[in-house]
Write a protein that binds this DNA or RNA. Structure first.
Lengths: 241, 241
DNA sequence: CGCCCCGTTGAGGAGAGTCAATGGCTGTGG
DNA sequence: CCACAGCCATTGACTCTCCTCAACGGGGCG
């Protein structure tokens, strides 16, 4: 059983590891994708549900003129794509940011396990609520925040989400994203991302030497970004009525 | 049974009206909200699932400094909020754009009906897939399109979505949104929305006299907006495997 | 008639994009 | 072991989209 997934699901529902075992026992096909590799092609038929066990991945859409918008980052414990349980085609691609290890479950087996276990269904439903809320917050970030605030806000979100997947995360953690990925995520150009990062550094809000990002002044970042973590639904306990 | 809801659900699943009757028969409490009224307050506990029967509503989030980002428009047939079946609080508000009539179903009754009817569950699942895909496209619109293109893209989306709810919609339909609402949807200022509309009018792409919007040159709009309707999942048939 | 809401238009300024040059780091092959 | 290529980040200069403040005008409604 993937630990990050268990950590996330168990945080909001009463769950033991055995609840999850049935899901992946049948065909525990761990797949590894190298950095830069395509995990799911746009337009591909979806027959499996994926869970990220290790590493980061991005979900993106492309425009005809070649521009790219990254819709969301997938961290350990995130699922792709609960809603694709219906037979449909991927309307966005998934690419590995680092080396990524995924576990796949066939849709029918997944649904069967959910039918037989109400607590498990509740836990996954809760994960879907969180996921959609994160999408909504991404909309607010793009629509109503400045470049600097977008960066600050994203960093704070990543910190909380990493903590939810059970990593020992304080104010220092590895962020394997390039400037261009940040740009495609935040609706900016990579040049402007670079400038905005320089500003955040100069203001003493962050340091970022190579890979490890440090939130030097979390409160300052939260003020700049108007960060309100409520949308992450980190507290609270799931209950399907 | 609300007709717009039936039109949308039946478009992608084999469904008869009787499938839906059980949902609303028990407590068919139609509620009307006047233009500008709050339908759901941010932070309110959610005990019901809502369906818009008539009129338009907006889902929005507010920032501390008073700025507003509209996450999505709700048209007849749209549900608020399938994912709130879990006991949680609204992380965004809903406000009536026109006079809005909603039908509410208690969460437990709703879930019971879904459990007893696989076709119904499939149809609602499909609606959720569409809804999330529309959110993703909103992200692309905000992140990677110019002001003019955002407007053109939104108008084309509204046309298709209205058609899905069963309205007789050609290239002319009523858009009850103010400039400021468009601005809060598209991440712009109302002044810039006004200017961009002037441009679209001057280019012969649209006319908008008072309420009725006419897409005078749909192909031109689609080119400007790089509109690819695939994300609306308008074709295709739902099947839960 | 007068108020208020909404839309338009103008002027000036700030934020973000584009093009381009530079420099560091890494991996590779002679 | 070093030279070179390729990728990535930074910085500069210039441009353009979009924002803010402000004035004005039209339509609905009391």
């Amino acid at each position: 059983v993937p630990k990050p997934l268990f950590a996330r699901l168990a945080a909001h529902a009463t769950l033991s590891e055995s609840d999850l075992e049935g899901l992946f026992a049948s065909d525990l096909s761990q797949t590894a994708h190298e950095r830069g590799e395509t995990v799911i092609e746009i337009g591909a038929a979806l027959s499996h549900v994926f869970v990220v066990v290790e590493g980061w991945a991005i979900r993106y859409r492309l425009l005809e003129d070649g521009r790219r918008q990254i819709v969301n980052v997938m961290l350990p414990g995130d699922c792709f794509d609960l809603q694709a349980l219906i037979n449909t085609r991927a309307d966005h691609g998934v690419e590995a940011v680092t080396r990524v290890i995924t576990v796949r479950a066939r849709k029918d087996g997944f649904l069967g396990a959910l039918h037989g276990n109400a607590r498990l269904a509740t836990a996954f439903w809760w994960a879907a609520v969180q996921e959609e809320s994160i999408l909504r917050e991404q909309i607010v970030r793009l629509g109503r925040r400045s470049g600097r605030a977008r960066l600050a806000h994203l960093f704070l979100e990543l910190q909380r989400r990493l903590a939810q997947s059970g990593e020992p995360t304080g104010d220092r953690f590895v962020v394997p994203l390039t400037r261009e990925m940040l740009a495609d995520m935040l609706g900016l150009s990579s040049v402007h991302v670079s400038r905005s990062l320089t500003f955040l550094r100069a203001a003493g809000l962050i340091t970022w030497n190579g890979a490890v990002l440090e939130l030097a002044d979390p409160d300052g970042l939260a003020t700049l970004a108007q960060f309100d973590p409520a949308y992450l639904h980190a507290g609270g306990r799931a209950r399907l009525e």
